[in-house]
Simulated scan of single mutants.
Amino acid sequence: MSSLFEDLKEGLEEAIAYEKGYGAGRVKTYMILPVKEYSGKEIRDIRTKAGMTQSVFASYMGVSIKTVEAWEGGRTHPTGPVFRLLDILSKNEEMEYIVAK
């Protein structure tokens, strides 16, 4: 299986060749799966499974500790980009993190 970068590079090379009159054009389509929305309990479970405190998790997500508390308490809900990060984090069983001091 090739990487996305390799696919894009190959596609650009084919497009250049096609514009110069060599070869035939082709189409490759990528499907983006819908974003899963997580509940407050699921967010807390993902955070604890990753071994993160609320403080570290807030830094990882780029939000305040109060925001993480509100998510986990169900008072507010994250937006799409955070759900993507949660999805990635939930599937990464060997998550390692570094706490900057």
Rank of each mutant, 00 (worst) to 15 (best):
S3N: 13
R84K: 15
E72W: 02
P34D: 15
T79Y: 13
I32R: 06
G80S: 15
T76A: 03
G74E: 06
E14Y: 05
I65K: 11
T79M: 12
A58R: 02
V56K: 04
A50Y: 05
T29D: 03
V68A: 01
G40V: 00
A58M: 06
L89A: 05
D7C: 08
A24K: 15
S59L: 14
T67E: 01
M95H: 11
R84Q: 10
P81V: 01
P81R: 13
S59F: 10
R84P: 00
I16M: 14
I88Y: 09
L4V: 12
P34Q: 13
S2L: 07
T67W: 00
I46G: 00
L12Y: 12
W71E: 00
E93H: 11
F5P: 01
G62A: 10
E96T: 14
K9P: 01
N92K: 06
I98Y: 15
K41I: 14
D7V: 03
T29Y: 08
A15N: 10
K36H: 10
E69Q: 10
V82D: 05
E10S: 14
F83E: 02
E96A: 10
E14D: 13
Y18Q: 11
K9V: 07
G62T: 03
M1K: 06
G74L: 10
G40L: 00
E94G: 14
P34S: 12
K9G: 04
L86T: 06
A17Q: 08
K49I: 04
G40T: 01
D7T: 04
A58I: 02
E96D: 13
E72R: 00
Y60P: 01
L89G: 02
G21C: 07
S64Y: 07
T53H: 03
K101C: 03
V99K: 07
L85E: 08
E13F: 08
K28F: 04
D87G: 10
D87P: 06
R26P: 00
G73P: 04
E42R: 01
M52V: 04
A70Q: 09
K9N: 12
E37C: 06
T53W: 04
G80T: 14
L33P: 11
T29M: 09
Q54H: 00
F5N: 13
T67F: 04
R26M: 03
I43E: 05
S59V: 11
Y22M: 14
Y97H: 09
G25D: 12
Y97S: 08
S3V: 03
L89T: 05
S39N: 06
A58C: 04
Q54D: 06
V68M: 05
I46Y: 00
M95G: 05
G23F: 08
A15P: 06
E94C: 11
R47D: 06
